[in-house]
C-alpha cells in the first residue's frame, strides 16, 4: 500500500520547523520505525531520531505518531488505520532537533523520588525473599522502560514543567510497594506536594500512552491512597 509520511523537522540552531513529506510503498505489517529508517537511508539521511533495540525494550524511539505517543518500533502501519502517517516529537519536552527531545528534565524529575532500592535494615548478607503475592503488588510498575511517552502526554505536565509527572510516580510506586524497601519517608516528601501527586487529575492520557500497558493512573491512585492513609 502507498502511504504519505509527514515528518516534523526542526533546525537545531534556529528552531525553524516544518513538515517534510515522503510517499512510500509499504507493507501494512511494516513498522513505523522501519519505514522511517528506510526514508533516512534512501531519501534524507539528515532526519534525526533516536532508536536502539527496535522491539520495545529500550524506550528510545517514543514519539507522537498520528497524535498519539507511542514507540515507532512497536507501531505497525496497519495499526494506524489510514494512509497518512504524521510523526512529531513528544510534547512538553524541548525539541533539540527534528524528533529528538531533551530528556534531562524527565530524568531530573525521577531523581526527586530517590529512585533506587533502600533496604529496610542494614545491607543484607543474603537475598531478601519475597512471596509471589508481595511481588504482584508492584509487578506492573516494574515494567516501565522510561521512554517518556506517559509524562509527555500529560496536560498537567504540559502546563507545568515542575510537576513530577506519571513516569516518576511509576518509579516511586515500584519502590514504595516493594515489601523489602524502607525508603518511604524520603519519597513521600516529594510526592505529597502540589507539584507531586496532587497535580494529577486522572486524565488517563498516561495509561493510554504507555507502550508497556502499565495501569499508570491506577498506580497513581494507589500512591495517593497510601499517602492519605499514613497521615
Amino acid at each position: 500500500m502507498q502511504v504519505t509520511v509527514e515528518i516534523y523537522r526542526q533546525d537545531a540552531e534556529t528552531g525553524a520547523s516544518r513538515f517534510d513529506t515522503f510517499i512510500r510503498e509499504v507493507d501494512p505489517k511494516d513498522r513505523v520505525l522501519d519505514v522511517m529508517m528506510e526514508i533516512k537511508d534512501q531519501d534524507d539521511g539528515s532526519i534525526a531520531f533516536r532508536k536502539s533495540c527496535g522491539h520495545g525494550v529500550c524506550g528510545s524511539d517514543a514519539m507522537m505518531i498520528n497524535g498519539i505517543n507511542r514507540l515507532a518500533c512497536q507501531t505497525l502501519i496497519q495499526d494506524l488505520k489510514g494512509s497518512l502517517i504524521r510523526i512529531e516529537p513528544l510534547k512538553g519536552l524541548k525539541v533539540l532537533r527534528d524528533l529528538i527531545v531533551d530528556m534531562d528534565p524527565f530524568l531530573a524529575s525521577l531523581q526527586k523520588v530517590t529512585p533506587y532500592f533502600i533496604p529496610k535494615t542494614t545491607a543484607p548478607v543474603r537475598e531478601q525473599k519475597q512471596s509471589i503475592a508481595e511481588r504482584q503488588i508492584f509487578d506492573d510498575t516494574t515494567k516501565c522502560i522510561m521512554c517518556g511517552a506517559c509524562t509527555s502526554s500529560c496536560p498537567s505536565y504540559w502546563s507545568n514543567g515542575e510537576y513530577l509527572g506519571p513516569a516518576t510516580f511509576v518509579k516511586a510506586h515500584r519502590f514504595i510497594f516493594d515489601s523489602r524497601d524502607g525508603g518511604d519517608a524520603e519519597r513521600i516528601e516529594a510526592l505529597d506536594d502540589r507539584d507531586g501527586l496532587w497535580r494529577c487529575h486522572s486524565i488517563f492520557n498516561c495509561t493510554d500512552a504507555c507502550p508497556r500497558d502499565i495501569k499508570i493512573t491506577q498506580a497513581i491512585s494507589e500512591l495517593k491512597r497510601y499517602i492519605v492513609a499514613r497521615r
Binding site: 537545531a12 540552531e13 533516512k40 534524507d44 539521511g45 539528515s46 534525526a48 531520531f49 533539540l96 532537533r97 527534528d98 529528538i100
Partner: peptide, 15 residues
C-alpha cells in the same frame, strides 16, 4: 559521504 553537515545530533554521521 555523509550529506548532513550539521554538528548537532548528526545521527547520519554516527551511522
Amino acid at each position: 559521504g555523509v550529506g548532513d553537515q550539521s554538528p548537532y545530533y548528526n545521527t547520519e554521521l554516527v551511522e
